Computed example of a mutant assay.
Amino acid sequence: MAYLTRIPVGRIFGFWSRSFSSPIKNPFFSSTLSHVPSYKISTTAHYSSPSPSPPPPLSAAMNTQVFSSSSRWRPMCLYFTQGKCTQMDDPSHLEKFNHDCSKDLQVNGTDIEKKCSQNVDFLLVIDLEGKVEILEFPVLLIDAKSLSLVDFFHRFVRPTKMSEQAVNKYIEGKYGEIGVDRVWHDTAQPFKEVMQQFEAWLSQHNLWEKEKGSRLTRAAFSVRLFDISGNWDLKTKIPQQCEVSGIKLPPYFMEWINLKDVYLNFYGREARGMMSMMKQLEIPLLGCHHLGIDDSKNIARVLQRMLVDGALMQVTAKRNPGSQKVEFLFENRIQHPSRQRR
């Protein structure tokens, strides 16, 4: 695997912008899929729930994937993404569900040559789901040089401070309408266990050493943030969930990239969320909006497009380990409407 030369991300960067007077055409992706509507996933009893195990390496998943003769889009198997699919030898299941997370993240080789060098080797795309407590924790590992998907981590998260009745109502409202409430109940784990598995996954890819208790090495979080203030996932929700779960805030959540701020400074125009960025860049939505793993893939597609266009991914916010105060590094950034300059 080829790596970029590591340059400290704490340096001070200059800012620049590009403006466009008309919508941007999208010759970027190798596939020309049209808009795919939201889908309902059937999670009937032919699934079982074996003991938790880590998902197979992405290369292994690609080797076992049985591709349909058609190029139609298929939803991800949400048991597979968590290492719990027991139907990998069932052709009808493989025909119905996608087991290759990289399939929606293909980039034309000629476009890769247009990108500029990045200051990290990898970018981690994260999109949390859940307002009261975190319900879904998906992370995609993108190679900053090849723009390809290296691996992914995906877990549904079970709240620990809510009654069973409240959880059931919460999940029905969040996932019931898109048909994934059953798989959530089958696979969700407490946040503390999810974080232990996530740290093992980071270590597996040599991105973090628990013994040193340090920040990420060779990688940075690139996030699409939930609310319009732009820092919900890592500034607000992760610390809240750590407190609820009785664990210390991990050191690798001390700095991150707000993709919306980089977008604003690079293109010279504002986009307040994933859907706005995709619309402006004419990137069709794939999967179901507000299903974390699908949103993460769509955010990764925006990220890939920005990198191909020449954007430099820079850390936009840092948290002081002592005071926990967050410093925003971009002067020109997406702000809450009440805080915008007049």
Rank of each mutant, 00 (worst) to 15 (best):
184 W>G: 03
198 F>P: 05
224 R>P: 11
229 S>N: 04
215 R>W: 02
186 D>S: 14
94 L>I: 06
107 V>Y: 03
142 I>W: 05
108 N>S: 15
180 V>I: 15
112 I>Y: 06
160 T>Q: 14
198 F>S: 10
101 C>G: 08
206 N>D: 11
113 E>K: 13
126 I>R: 04
214 S>Q: 05
182 R>V: 12
208 W>F: 12
186 D>N: 15
217 T>W: 06
145 K>N: 14
127 D>A: 04
179 G>Y: 09
128 L>A: 08
162 M>D: 00
212 K>Y: 06
222 S>Q: 05
163 S>H: 02
96 K>C: 14
182 R>C: 04
155 R>K: 15
93 H>R: 03
184 W>I: 03
146 S>G: 04
105 L>E: 03
192 K>T: 15
118 Q>H: 10
174 K>G: 00
188 A>D: 10
124 L>Q: 08
102 S>P: 04
125 V>R: 02
119 N>I: 13
95 E>W: 14
211 E>L: 09
186 D>A: 14
139 V>Y: 12
228 I>P: 00
164 E>R: 10
169 K>V: 06
182 R>Y: 00
218 R>K: 09
177 E>D: 03
181 D>N: 09
134 I>S: 11
170 Y>P: 10
177 E>P: 05
155 R>Y: 12
175 Y>D: 01
211 E>G: 02
161 K>F: 00
214 S>F: 00
204 Q>G: 06
171 I>A: 01
183 V>G: 07
101 C>S: 14
221 F>Y: 12
141 L>S: 05
220 A>T: 13
95 E>C: 13
219 A>Y: 08
94 L>G: 04
167 V>N: 03
149 L>V: 10
144 A>N: 01
158 R>F: 04
194 V>E: 06
207 L>S: 08
138 P>I: 02
150 V>Y: 01
122 F>L: 07
128 L>V: 04
183 V>R: 04
199 E>K: 15
111 D>H: 13
227 D>P: 01
192 K>R: 13
180 V>H: 13
99 H>W: 13
220 A>L: 14
124 L>E: 12
158 R>A: 06
168 N>K: 12
161 K>R: 15
160 T>N: 06
180 V>N: 08
225 L>H: 10
219 A>R: 04
222 S>V: 13
145 K>V: 05
113 E>A: 14
212 K>M: 09
149 L>G: 09
185 H>N: 11
181 D>Y: 00
96 K>M: 12
168 N>T: 07
136 E>I: 09
207 L>W: 03
124 L>I: 14
164 E>K: 11
159 P>H: 08
166 A>W: 07
144 A>F: 07
177 E>C: 11
126 I>D: 01
164 E>W: 03
213 G>E: 05
118 Q>Y: 10
127 D>C: 02
200 A>M: 10
105 L>M: 12
116 C>M: 13
159 P>I: 11
125 V>H: 10
161 K>S: 15
186 D>Y: 06
119 N>T: 10
99 H>C: 10
152 F>G: 01
126 I>C: 12
140 L>R: 02
212 K>V: 05
118 Q>L: 09
127 D>W: 00
190 P>H: 04
93 H>L: 05
125 V>I: 15
212 K>G: 01
93 H>F: 06
103 K>F: 09
134 I>C: 11
180 V>D: 08
160 T>P: 05
217 T>C: 07
223 V>L: 01
